[in-house]
Write a protein that binds this DNA or RNA. Structure first.
Lengths: 243, 243
DNA sequence: CGAGTGATTGACGCAGATCAAGCGAAGTGG
DNA sequence: CCACTTCGCTTGATCTGCGTCAATCACTCG
């Protein structure tokens, strides 16, 4: 029993732009179905020419690239509401792989319908471009973090960003505590630092009473302190469209 | 005397997708004018809410972010054909600054016309999204370079990428030699390494007979060797739309 | 001719990589 | 139910790529 777009629980969140009932119904018509993915399964591969686009409905995942030297760069973490597969949809093939970290539910759109949808729904076309621009913004910020911050700052940056995002999605368990089922290796690969060093930095953040991340959950102790260290402005998350 | 889009010399390059005469004329109507910028002038600032979008016609520039700690991350180098200001056009304000390194000529579009254009020309809307996706792809690649490669590899990566791009734009002076009027500091800020180290790495690349970059021009001595070191596939540059 | 800008080079120290070992929790198979 | 393996986390020891500091050189320009 797939979720009806009109009843989509994500859409109620302030982080997503509000659109009219008719517009939601148009998205519903574009929607080809729903897909459930098991934890640990890669579902888009670099170089693949996927016939589908997705919106994450629930669950967490990650996008990554594997380099010729065997190393892996995690491009970003995937949260509910993220639109996946635009590159394949436009440029023909994926430039990175995507896998589900936890079980995920995906909203599926057919690539073959994509251009038609784009043509008949200019506001949605606008939104998709908007999504791409938001993505570009975050990648730019990540680039700046990798390039210009040290291990401690980088890690603080990543954890605040993730926290703010999960908060905006209403995914906090309780008092500033939220699920974060990734491995330290995933964060290390995202931040371009070794697993060992990442582990030591996390210990330091814990010692400093800023955050602790263990057993698949982060507990923020001092959001302001963490954000300051990571150079993140605590403001409401960027409002973005939801497809 | 602004360039007529139909006569735009860039459009002849294979790196840009071919579109029909009518489509080009539509872009021409969207075009609000042309702007010449002096070398060294910033023309879009982080946080600014620019009423305009641009396409670089000639000259080179760079996009960068300045962090709260005072450090600068160069997001990428700007070449002719690049579309500039999409973030402000969509999300309201720029998330990075843009400046002209050499004198530049820009094609100007009014943001106020943007949505109308998007609506009335779905194929162009599609193209703009495509551009955003291409940008995202390159940022992902840059992220992987900063995160997973060492100084030598990173520098080799950057120089090959730049070379391939300039080649595709027909900007080679002569035998594998092309203008590259940036400072070493700019490259250092793009790669997230210190100026001193960048300088030493450049010396090493020169010693190894791979590339030499001096006096504002790069001379490639061994493209394959350089590309291998930088982990770059030498294939034709991604074909992209030109606005 | 002095001042400013960018490239270059050497000396020194540290952040973070790499290596290695140990630990607890969760399978898994006999 | 107990060996045995696997996986992720943690911690210590050692080594090095790269940052920082500092000085010099070549140019350009007012």
């Amino acid at each position: 029993m797939p979720t009806a777009c009109l009843a989509c629980p994500l859409r109620r969140r302030d982080i997503f732009t509000k659109i009219s009932r008719e517009e939601i119904e148009a998205i519903q018509r574009f929607k080809a179905g729903e897909l459930k993915i098991e934890a640990g399964t890669p579902f888009l591969m670099e170089g693949s020419n996927s016939p589908q686009l997705f919106t994450a409905l629930s669950g967490l995942g990650l996008r990554y690239k594997t380099l010729e030297n065997g190393r892996r760069q995690v491009i970003n973490f995937l949260f509910p509401g993220d639109f996946i597969g635009l590159q394949a949809g436009l440029m023909g093939e994926m430039q990175h792989s995507v896998e589900a970290t936890t079980a995920m539910t995906l909203c599926v759109f057919d690539r073959s319908e994509f251009f038609r949808f784009f043509r008949s729904h200019p506001s949605r076309a606008f939104d998709i471009t908007w999504l791409a621009a938001v993505e570009e913004h975050f990648l730019g910020e990540a680039l700046a973090s990798l390039g210009q911050r040290n291990g401690l700052e980088r890690t603080a940056w990543a954890l605040t960003r993730i926290y703010l995002r999960l908060e905006a999605l209403g995914m906090l368990d309780s008092d500033k505590r939220c699920p974060l089922p990734y491995r330290q290796q995933d964060l290390a690969d995202a931040l371009g630092q070794s697993l060992v060093h990442t582990n030591k930095v996390l210990a330091k953040l814990r010692d400093r009473q800023l955050v602790s991340w263990s057993d698949g959950a982060v507990q923020i102790h001092d959001l302001k302190g963490l954000a300051d260290l990571g150079g993140v402005e605590i403001e409401s998350e960027i409002v973005r469209p939801l497809m």
